[in-house]
Computed example of a mutant assay.
Amino acid sequence: MAYPSIYLASTTEELFRRIDQLNPESQALWGKMSVDQMLSHCAVPYEQILGINTDRPPLYMRIILKAYKDSMVNEVPYKQNLPTSPTFIRADSYHFSKVRDRLKELIKTIQEMGAEQLSNTPSLSLGKLSAIEWNNLLYKHIDHHLAQFGV
């Protein structure tokens, strides 16, 4: 089943609707992250695309990630409780509304960036990705974490 297109405003609006159902007391159905940590975690790939966050995974992790690339960019949802790359771990506390609004701003920026420009931007972890691979990677990741918090 194809994922919704992150390049469409309607998908962005639906993601915003789901994000806006969260609140500072939202509890995870699985995993260890708090809701503010999850929002900050979800912002990482968008920040990497835009060059705001240039933290690359260590070499050993990039090798592991490339070995799992197909499972990361395909149309099969992530399983619960998968390990997290060190560059994506968020252990601090964050101001809920600030990280929520920041994530929404980043999602909108990537949507407006469009498929062509995004496909010309390599992933810091996986290298060159097609527009469809970027779509699947980004949508699948945020969908997984919103589902983690029941939205």
Score class of each variant (00 low, 15 high):
Tyr139Ser: 14
Arg17Ile: 03
Ile132Gly: 07
Arg17His: 14
Thr121His: 06
Ala2Cys: 03
Glu14Asn: 11
His141Tyr: 12
Thr84Trp: 04
Gly150Lys: 13
Leu82Gln: 15
Ser85Cys: 12
Asn120Ser: 08
Pro77Val: 03
Lys104Asp: 02
Ile64Gln: 03
Lys98Asn: 06
Leu50Ala: 12
Ile89His: 05
Asp70Ile: 08
Met1Asp: 08
Trp30Ala: 11
Asp92Gly: 06
Ser40Asp: 10
Asp36Lys: 01
Phe96Lys: 01
Ala115Ile: 03
Ser125Gly: 04
Leu39Trp: 00
Glu105Cys: 06
Gly127Met: 04
Leu103Ser: 00
Trp134Pro: 00
His141Phe: 10
Pro4Trp: 15
Gln111Lys: 13
Lys98Pro: 01
Thr87Val: 15
Pro45Lys: 13
Lys98Phe: 03
Ala28Ile: 11
Met1Phe: 05
Asp20Gly: 10
Gln48Ile: 12
Met33Trp: 11
Tyr68Leu: 13
Val151Gly: 03
Ala28Cys: 12
Ala43His: 03
Arg62Val: 01
Phe88Leu: 14
Asp20Gln: 12
Lys128Tyr: 03
Ala115Gly: 01
Leu39Ile: 01
Leu59His: 05
Leu146Cys: 10
Leu39Ser: 01
Ser5Tyr: 09
Arg102Cys: 01
Leu103Asn: 00
Val35Ile: 15
Ile6Ser: 01
Ile49Met: 06
His95Asp: 09
His141Val: 10
Asn136Thr: 12
Phe16Ala: 08
Asp55Ile: 09
Ala28Gln: 13
Glu75Thr: 15
Ala131Cys: 07
Tyr7Glu: 04
Thr87Lys: 14
Gln111His: 14
Thr109Ser: 14
Asp143Tyr: 12
Leu29Cys: 06
His95Tyr: 04
Thr11Leu: 08
Asn120Gln: 11
Ala147Tyr: 07
Asn81Lys: 12
Lys32Tyr: 11
Lys128Thr: 06
Leu106His: 13
Lys69Thr: 04
His141Gly: 10
Glu116Ile: 08
His95Gln: 07
Phe88Trp: 11
Phe16Gln: 10
Val99Pro: 00
Glu25Trp: 05
Arg90Gln: 14
Met61Tyr: 13
Trp134His: 05
Gly31Met: 12
Asn74Pro: 02
Val35Pro: 04
Thr121Phe: 06
Ser119Lys: 08
Ala9Pro: 03
Gln148Trp: 01
Ala91Ile: 08
Gly114Ser: 04
Cys42Phe: 02
Lys104His: 04
Ser85Trp: 04
Asp101His: 05
Asp70Ser: 13
Asn136Phe: 04
Glu14Ala: 15
Thr121Met: 07
Leu39Pro: 00
His145Asp: 00
Ala131Glu: 09
Tyr68Arg: 09
Ala28Gly: 15
Ser93Met: 05
Thr87Asp: 14
Pro45Asn: 09
Glu105Gly: 10
Gly51Met: 12
Leu15Tyr: 08
Arg102Tyr: 09
His141Thr: 11
Glu105Lys: 14
Gln27Arg: 14
Arg17Asp: 14
His41Trp: 00
Ser34Ile: 08
